[in-house]
Design a protein around this nucleic acid. Sequence first.
DNA 1: TTTTAATTGTGAAATTAATCACAACTATGA
DNA 2: TCATAGTTGTGATTAATTTCACAATTAAAA
Lengths: 211, 211
Amino acid sequence: MKQITKYVLRHDTKRLFTYRQCLIGFKRKGFDRIFSYNLGEEAGVTAEQVRKDFSVFKIKGNKKAGYKIDDLLTAIEEVFKYQLNQHVIIVGMGNIGKALVQYKRFMLRKMIIVASFDIDPTKQSKRWGIPILPLEMLDDIIKRFHVKVAIIAVPEMSAQDIVNKLIDLGIKGFLNFAPVILKTPENIVVHNINLCDELESVIYYTQKVVE
Amino acid sequence: MKQITKYVLRHDTKRLFTYRQCLIGFKRKGFDRIFSYNLGEEAGVTAEQVRKDFSVFKIKGNKKAGYKIDDLLTAIEEVFKYQLNQHVIIVGMGNIGKALVQYKRFMLRKMIIVASFDIDPTKQSKRWGIPILPLEMLDDIIKRFHVKVAIIAVPEMSAQDIVNKLIDLGIKGFLNFAPVILKTPENIVVHNINLCDELESVIYYTQKVVE
DNA sequence: TTTTAATTGTGAAATTAATCACAACTATGA
DNA sequence: TCATAGTTGTGATTAATTTCACAATTAAAA
């Protein structure tokens, strides 16, 4: 396995998540085998792309009979197995933070939000089963649950400070909703979601697409 | 200008949004000129990338003296100008929908959320200044405000039905938070944000990056 | 006015990603 | 058992994206 020092989210890896989700859907509908074009259609990519992606991860099917869904799911789980039941924290209980802390799908996908944090003591409580704690407890929680990944949902202004602090406390990966590009050392994974940018690009392309 | 029939979000276009955001930050800090490497560092890309992106959009600087921030901002606004003050609706007032309806930055970026919709009458109200309406009013609002873009924040199960309905009513672009790949005709722009996939890929890479 | 040092702008090269095309395989039916 | 039709798996090709490298430019200093 090649070592990664710089974080680059590869398209084929990301698509595996989509495939898994589609496969679970197919299974629920009663299918037990599928062809690459079924999965491609459902996942919004070409059949060749599906096969190519599987080939990258050495996932094999049966010529003529396609893929057994259970085998595919097992193979995909194998790729991601060591990351199941990872503990994650959320920092910032504004609108976005509150939405994420209540988002049930993380649990379905075996990602465990162990705690959330906010600087505002009036927000600190135990609603939704997941405690909202003061920042002073970051150290304790991160150590106790061996947390390596944090979701940043604090305002733009405080994001960099919080991230610096979290890196000191051992956090290695960030899903960042604050609209800033975070300055981090090598080896720290940062993935940004900028909601304004996302909406704006939809508007941009909507106006460019031919009628 | 080449016609686009298939929606592909180009990287260079998306980076323009980031550049704009960084430039506003630089301006706020009192700068009035910058070099490509300043902007690159702030935006998390190389200086060459910055210059190449500008070159794609015919944005020129001054050799030796870099770029005037105001000129850059004007040039970027020019690229996106016809999409300012676009009206957008949000469908689905679950956790995500509620967070988005309260998200102030959309307005700062001149994107106007004119209304939100939910099937559940108990959620229908006028909190946060933006009305929450029943689905029956979609037609009226879309026509009245010439809405072309919708944010989908409904549960997985109802997403495709809602989208079909919205396309019938004239919606051309979707920012989709439901964890399904939507089936849409050509010429309809769909951009998916799957929060589980995003978090999961951070976890995946966090475990792969060398210590 | 001339020189210098620093930066832009952009072809060319390299890398990454997607699509094409078809040989190899195999379940099925004759 | 054999032929057939329908899929997979993957090299080859094409396309998109990034990086490299350096000529052209120019502000500022001499």
